[in-house]
Amino acid sequence: MNIQWLSSLGMLHHLDMSGVDLSKVTDGLQVINTLPSLVQLHLSSCELSNIHPYVPSLNLTSLSLLDLSFNNFHSFVPEWLFSITSLVSLDLTWCHFHGRVPSGIHSFRNLTSLELLHVAKNDFMNSTLVLKELSGSNLESLDISSCGVSSLHLDTLRNLTSLISLEL
């Protein structure tokens, strides 16, 4: 129920807690936010269902990989995700995020280093506006399967000239 012990590992670069039941942890994001050297964070299949939508000060400036896949958040996409401008890989597969993605500085347009984006099974991706924000990015891998994306919206992907892998 408490992962406070992680905060003493200030030099930690790689944290993989995939498959660990963190459903009862209440201070997870606050503790992880105390790890400024963190480069990779894997929290896949951790039974997470609550995610803080707003974080006043995010201290994850070195983070290049974030994997929150296979957690059932059933909530809006948290704005703080778009503040991690160092992200190269973002996996939100089967997180069940829905609603609108914020615009402006809290959008995919802010994630200029992003090369891998896997968001299968998230309803927020079924918008032309969201797909347009990815236009011209350096994405090499994009998974938007089971997102309810209409074939009418697919034309917005034509400017993703760096794509190597596309899953629809």
Rank of each mutant, 00 (worst) to 15 (best):
P56C: 04
G136N: 10
T161P: 05
S45F: 04
H96K: 11
F73E: 07
L9Y: 05
L38C: 06
S23M: 09
L63P: 00
G28T: 10
E167S: 15
T112V: 14
N126A: 07
D21R: 11
R109S: 14
C46T: 12
L154K: 09
K24A: 13
K132Q: 13
S7D: 12
L157H: 05
L116T: 15
S8F: 10
L139S: 04
L142N: 02
L154Q: 08
L81A: 05
E115T: 15
H106R: 13
S83I: 01
A120E: 02
G10W: 04
L81F: 15
H118L: 11
T93F: 04
D67Y: 07
L6D: 00
V149P: 02
S113G: 04
P56V: 06
K121V: 12
S165L: 07
K132I: 05
V31W: 00
L68N: 05
I51L: 12
D91I: 13
L131R: 01
Q40H: 14
S165W: 05
Q4G: 08
L22E: 12
S69R: 04
V77N: 00
L129Y: 07
S23Y: 07
M1G: 13
F124A: 01
S137I: 00
G104V: 06
S89D: 13
L81E: 02
L114A: 09
S145C: 09
L68D: 01
L117F: 06
S75L: 04
E140Q: 15
E79V: 02
L41G: 03
S18H: 06
G104E: 07
N59A: 11
W5N: 08
L131I: 06
V25R: 01
F82A: 00
P36H: 08
L154C: 13
L116R: 13
A120V: 05
F124T: 00
T112S: 14
L22K: 11
V55A: 01
S44E: 15
M11C: 11
N122D: 08
D155A: 07
H14D: 10
Q40S: 13
